[in-house]
Simulated assay, not measured.
Amino acid sequence: MKFFIALALFACLGSLALASNEEYCQNTVITACSSSAFSGKSNSICNARFAGIDHVEPEVQSYINAQLAKSYDYLLLATHFNSYQKNRPGFQKLYQGLSDRSFDDSIALIKQVTRRGGIVDFNTRHESAGSVSTKRGTLEVDELHSLALALDTEKQLATGATHVHSRATHAADGDRDPELAHYLEENFLGKQAESVRKLSGYANDLAKLMKVPDPSLSVYLFDEYLQKQ
Rank of each mutant, 00 (worst) to 15 (best):
S131R: 05
Y95E: 04
L139G: 15
K111N: 12
G90A: 04
G130T: 04
S128L: 09
Q112V: 00
T124P: 03
G130P: 05
R101E: 13
A129F: 04
D142S: 08
P89G: 12
S102N: 12
K111W: 01
G97F: 00
D105P: 00
V120W: 06
L109C: 03
G117W: 14
A129S: 08
T138E: 09
F91M: 10
G137I: 06
D121T: 06
K135N: 12
G118N: 01
D104M: 07
L94V: 00
L109P: 02
K135G: 15
S106M: 09
G117R: 02
F122Q: 09
R125P: 03
G117M: 11
T138V: 07
L109V: 05
D121Q: 05
S106I: 11
D104W: 08
S99V: 00
D104R: 11
G117F: 14
R115S: 14
S106N: 07
I119C: 12
R136L: 07
D142Y: 11
Q96C: 10
G130F: 02
P89K: 00
V120G: 02
D104E: 09
Y95V: 14
T114S: 09
I110M: 07
Q96N: 13
V141R: 12
G130A: 00
G137R: 03
S102C: 05
G137T: 13
V141H: 15
I119G: 05
R125V: 05
S133N: 13
Q112Y: 15
R101W: 02
K111T: 10
V120F: 07
G97Y: 00
R116D: 06
P89M: 07
I107E: 09
S106C: 10
V132L: 08
I110G: 02
V113Y: 00
D142W: 12
I107L: 12
L139R: 13
D100F: 01
K93C: 04
T134P: 11
S106Y: 15
R115D: 12
D105S: 05
S128G: 12
G97T: 04
L139Q: 14
V132A: 09
A108K: 14
G130L: 04
G97R: 05
S99D: 01
L98V: 01
R101N: 12
R116G: 08
R101P: 02
R115Y: 08
H126I: 05
D121M: 13
K93F: 06
R116T: 08
Q112A: 10
S106V: 11
R125M: 03
V132P: 06
L94N: 10
G137F: 00
I119V: 10
S106P: 11
K93E: 04
D100K: 04
S102F: 03
Q112T: 05
V120R: 02
S102K: 13
F91D: 10
A108T: 01
H126S: 08
Q112D: 09
F91I: 07
T114P: 00
K111F: 08
N123H: 06
T134M: 14
D142M: 14
V141D: 12
H126Y: 15
R115T: 15
D105L: 13
A108R: 13
T134R: 13
Q96A: 08
F103G: 02
T124V: 14
D100L: 09
G137C: 06
P89R: 05
L139T: 15
K93G: 09
S99K: 00
G117A: 06
I110H: 00
D104G: 03
D100I: 04
H126T: 04
A108G: 04
T114A: 08
S128E: 08
P89T: 11
G97V: 01
D142F: 13
S128M: 05
N123Y: 10
S102E: 15
G117C: 03
